[in-house]
Design a protein around this nucleic acid. Structure first.
Length: 477
RNA sequence: UCCCCGAUAGCUCAAUGGUAGAGCGAGCGGCUGUUAACCGCUAGGUUGUAGGUUCGAGUCCUACUCGGGGAGCCA
């Protein structure tokens, strides 16, 4: 007998005999026809369960019907049987079982942590090893996979190479926040250097090392030979951030393109978002319909709007003018002034109220952005001060989903920026080499993978779109 | 890190300072080709931890722990 997945079985033609293997989602019984029960069986391959019918009497009577009729949510079984058109409403096909093998029972149904009832996401976070058995987290897992594959497909079709940048980094100059130290030294008995500080020369790598906060500086070197590259992997931030949009361990996508300016970078970001969202709606229509129904009403319409609408491109300087005009009625908590960074409330006003569409903000003041961003010509956009070729992609509901820039390819300007910001120029020797040996204009951006999943599913808390979230004081599982 | 809110049955929540309850889930029974089923019965509690006030504390006070929402930082 052929073992088939639930997904394949749901679309198969009745008349086939086959085997299903999975976990019981629900069981209902009836005294009709001499006794029968209905098992909703899941194996994760589709959003919908398949109905397995077990009978106590007649030709299809099961020898172990009494045991089968005691199955509870979470039990694992194998079922052989004939696929038939369903007599009941709610499904088109069902499996009439000829044999059901009970593989694993649930010890105590009364204390099974995820019975078939409503649970809060807060509670399910404490049951991270079991929450994937629920509709919502099964759907999140499938969508997460679909988006990851879609991102790889998009870049592969556009002749990008996936570059595996290191997770352990010896650079302390990535400049994107607090880092986690990687060490094999005994924390209780660390060796001291002559000046009393920790002697990292005795550590595994012979120097201080950390978990990466970004693969950007590394991937820029590959860009300077392979033209179109991207990273997709975990990154780590030791920031004490306790929000629904931050994790200590998250996945990031960072493309980098050579012979490209900020406009090409924005084009890439917009094309990528539109591609993966359209691909998702097509490939995971079942799960997306669920999110639309149960998590965020109108989700699919919102995503279609994003796919069809050109992203609004707006210089920072013009955004400030719009926000200053709106200040009276919008009642912003924080001041709006050229030279200050935009707050969440400002970004959300622009994308949710003013334009009601994704917005790509470009050309930010130099002083609020990183050293590696390319300095614009004076007077760009009529700005009253110096700007850099930075961009942020803002989307309704999430705010900033992408941050990127054209990189500074001129060595003299880059050095000046490193010095201005008080950074140690020696730390950047290999990064500066890119500007000495065949420098080219290039640009790239970072996309937080979990934020993309939030945007695509409507899930409110980022801890619910990664299997085992890491956040301050949270590393269980 | 800052500001607010919360912690009571397996889960979600009630309970003027005075005998801790309900819904869901679970178990048993009834009904039914069932499917958020329906009807009945039953079990289930050191009220987050440690102190304090009081004749008496789930309730008031203090500290701590954990969780949530918002802000900052950012992706």
């Amino acid at each position: 007998m052929t073992w088939k997945t639930v997904a394949d079985t749901l679309t198969a033609t009745p008349g086939e005999t086959l085997t299903l293997k999975g976990w019981v989602r629900t069981r209902r019984d009836s005294k009709a026809d001499g006794g029968l029960c209905f098992i909703a069986l899941h194996d994760g391959t589709s959003h919908d369960a398949i109905q397995v019918v077990a009978k106590a009497a007649g030709d299809d009577a099961l020898a172990n019907y009494d045991e089968v009729n005691k199955l509870t949510t979470g039990c694992s079984i194998e079922a052989d049987g004939l696929l038939v058109e369903s007599q009941g409403k709610g499904q088109s096909v069902e499996l009439v079982a000829s044999e059901i093998r009970i593989i694993g029972l649930v010890d105590d149904p009364d204390t099974y942590p995820v019975p078939q009832k409503r649970h809060t996401f807060e509670y399910l976070r404490e049951q991270a090893h079991l929450r994937v058995r629920t509709n919502t987290f099964g759907a999140v897992a499938r969508v997460r996979h679909a988006l990851a594959m879609s991102i790889h497909r998009f870049f592969d079709e556009q002749d990008f190479y996936w570059v595996h940048t290191p997770i352990i980094t010896g650079s302390d100059c990535e400049g994107a926040g607090q880092m986690f130290r990687v060490s094999t030294l005994d924390a209780m008995n660390a060796p001291s250097a002559d000046d009393g500080s920790c002697d990292f020369d005795k550590d595994f790598f012979g120097k201080e090392t950390h978990l990466t906060v970004s693969g950007q500086l590394n991937v820029e070197t590959y860009c300077s030979a392979l033209s179109r590259v991207y990273t997709f992997g975990p990154t780590f931030r030791a920031e004490n951030s306790n929000t629904s949009r931050h994790l200590a361990e998250f996945w990031m996508i960072e493309p980098e393109i050579a012979f490209a300016d900020l406009a090409a970078n924005a084009d890439l970001a917009e094309a990528m978002l539109k591609f993966v969202l359209a691909d998702l709606l097509q490939r995971r229509a079942d799960d997306m319909a669920f999110f639309d129904l149960r998590i965020e009403k109108g989700l699919i319409e919102r995503l279609k709007h994003v796919i069809e609408t050109p992203f609004k491109r707006l210089p920072y300087t013009e955004a400030i003018a719009i926000l200053e005009k709106a200040q009276g009625k919008a009642k912003f908590e924080y001041p709006v002034k050229w030279g200050l960074d935009l707050q969440s409330e400002h970004e959300r006003y622009l994308t949710e109220k003013h334009f009601k569409a994704p917005v790509i903000l470009i050309n930010y003041p130099k002083d609020i952005k990183a050293f590696y961003m390319r300095v614009n010509d004076p007077g760009t956009d009529g700005a009253p001060g110096d700007t850099v070729a930075a961009m942020d992609v803002l989307v309704p509901g999430i705010g900033e989903i992408i941050g990127g820039s054209q990189r500074e390819e001129r060595l003299d300007v880059l050095d000046q920026r490193i010095n201005e910001m008080g950074l140690n120029i020696d730390d950047y020797w290999w990064y500066r080499d890119m500007r000495k040996y065949g420098t080219v204009p290039h640009a790239g951006f970072g996309l937080g993978f979990e934020r993309l999943i939030q945007f695509a599913t409507g899930m409110a808390n980022i801890r619910d779109v990664i299997p085992f979230p890491r956040a301050p004081r949270q590393a269980e599982f």
